[in-house]
Write a protein that binds this DNA or RNA. Structure first.
Lengths: 173, 173
DNA sequence: TATTGTTATACTCTATAACTATA
DNA sequence: TATAGTTATAGAGTATAACAATA
């Protein structure tokens, strides 16, 4: 018998012969498909750094806000404190970032990139920017409109779910 | 001392005073922010059914393609076989769906909604459709363009990452 | 009394690998 | 020999809860 070979997982391609019903018309499903594709493409474009999109975002935030607190990082990324801790642990273990004492609060850390991290991030940022440019180029003028539409959608959906007459229900508390 | 109360996690709101650097300009980051917001809003709008967006998609696929194989479900959703198994386990355990013998292949299952599942899905689909309509309404004519842009982006990003001159590297194999 | 970060723990999601029973 | 599904396991990711040190 043949031992299972790894399948090319993750590609959320439309399967011929399968009826997607209302999914094809939903904004939310289109968003998921797009994010799935973009996620895989991000990995391809940044393979040599082995950094997930989320970790990339954390690196940029630390780089642009030297001394950033873990708590603020969590808030900016929509994470729990403990999530920011794990994230920071990984970044420090990989040599990207380091914790230094915060000058004004003995409880807190200030997060900083290491010199190595700065050097690596410069190249990684360039690769990500190039990746994004390639996508925008392929989309043409639709790309600009898309970006604007996404920014607005984030705003609208947030307004909708935090409207005062709506019950808040977080996923699986 | 006060025992920790659960924080309102998951909202990826821009934090005042934090510099997001290049993130604000990236298509990929805009996509992530939008999906984050939409995800939370989906949960709010469908709270009484306790079904995630992904499980909702599975239900629709089974409903529109009675007798669907687990393997095809996996393919359509970009999952591994074992992922479709877990998903199906959950759907059957909750009374949404059931496995029946496939008429033409003794190895395979045919997936079907239960009568209860059909009844529940009708209402859930209506709630999701209404949720989507509300978003589109709030976006105005930008919404139509956004939907089209997302469809195209999924296509473009897929083409980019599956181009013959690009190395395939799946995330963390 | 509240906040920052930590530890310990648990649950979800999703993958890999090896297995079975069919084909 | 290949395919459909299963089992067992492992690794992310992210949450909760209780805690220490500091504010």
């Amino acid at each position: 018998m043949k031992t299972d070979s790894p399948d090319p997982e993750g590609l959320m391609l439309p399967v011929p012969g399968v009826d997607y019903g209302p999914l094809d018309g939903l904004l939310g499903y289109a968003l998921r498909r797009a994010q799935n594709a973009l996620y895989l493409d991000f990995y391809r474009a940044t393979a040599e750094w082995d950094v997930s999109p989320q970790r990339f975002a954390a690196l940029v935030l630390i780089a642009r806000n030297p001394g950033l607190r873990q708590g603020l990082l969590a808030q900016a990324m929509g994470l729990h404190r403990s999530g920011a801790l794990r994230l920071t642990d990984w970044l420090t273990a990989q040599g990207w970032a380091e914790r230094r004492d915060a000058p004004d609060d003995a409880r807190a850390w200030g997060l900083h990139l290491t010199p190595t991290g700065k050097r690596r991030l410069a190249k990684l940022e360039a690769a990500v920017a190039e990746h994004d440019r390639a996508l925008l180029a392929a989309l043409g003028e639709q790309g600009i409109a898309l970006k604007a539409g996404l920014d607005r959608l984030a705003w609208v959906a947030t307004a909708q779910s935090t409207a005062p007459d709506n019950k808040h229900r977080r996923p699986k508390p």
